[in-house]
Amino acid sequence: MSKVKKKNGVMYWPSTPRFLLMAEQLHLTPEFNQRPEDVDEEPERIKLLPPQFLSSLVATEPYEGYQKERLNFTGNGIYQYVKCTAHNVAQIDVHSLLPTMAYQLGLLDEQHEKMFLEKKEIEADPNYPTNKRLVAKRKRLKHELNKYCSTIGKTKTEHSINRFKAMYSGMNMVFDMLNYWGLSNVINCVNDGFIVTNYSDEKFEQFKEKYCKKIKYLTFSVKQYDFCLVKNDLEYLLLNKNGDYKCRNHEFDKKGVYRKLTGRSLNDETVSFDGKAMLEAENIEKEAITVCKNLFLKTTN
Rank of each mutant, 00 (worst) to 15 (best):
C228V: 00
N283M: 09
W181G: 01
M177Y: 05
R248L: 06
V230D: 01
K47A: 10
F116Y: 13
F220G: 08
V82W: 01
L107S: 08
T290I: 07
K83E: 05
D244V: 05
E118S: 15
L238P: 10
I92Q: 09
W181I: 02
A86E: 05
M101V: 07
Y236S: 12
W181C: 00
N162P: 06
L107W: 07
R248T: 03
R45E: 14
M177I: 01
F204K: 00
L218Q: 12
G65A: 04
E287V: 02
I46V: 15
E113H: 02
Y63A: 00
F194S: 15
L20V: 08
S265P: 05
M1Q: 12
N8C: 15
L57V: 10
F32V: 14
R133E: 15
Q104R: 08
N188Q: 13
R70C: 12
E110C: 05
R133M: 14
T300I: 13
D38I: 02
L28T: 05
H95T: 10
M11S: 03
K260C: 13
F204T: 01
K68A: 13
S56L: 15
E123Y: 10
L266R: 11
E205S: 14
Y81E: 03
L141N: 13
P126C: 09
E144G: 04
Y211S: 10
L54R: 15
S184P: 00
K208G: 03
I122G: 11
D192H: 06
P126Y: 08
D93F: 07
N179P: 00
S15A: 12
I195S: 03
L26N: 11
A277D: 03
L107V: 08
F296Q: 06
C84Q: 07
P129H: 06
N198T: 03
S96D: 15
T74F: 12
K5D: 02
P126K: 06
G263D: 11
L279H: 11
I284H: 04
F32T: 05
K154H: 09
R70P: 01
L279D: 08
I92T: 03
T155K: 04
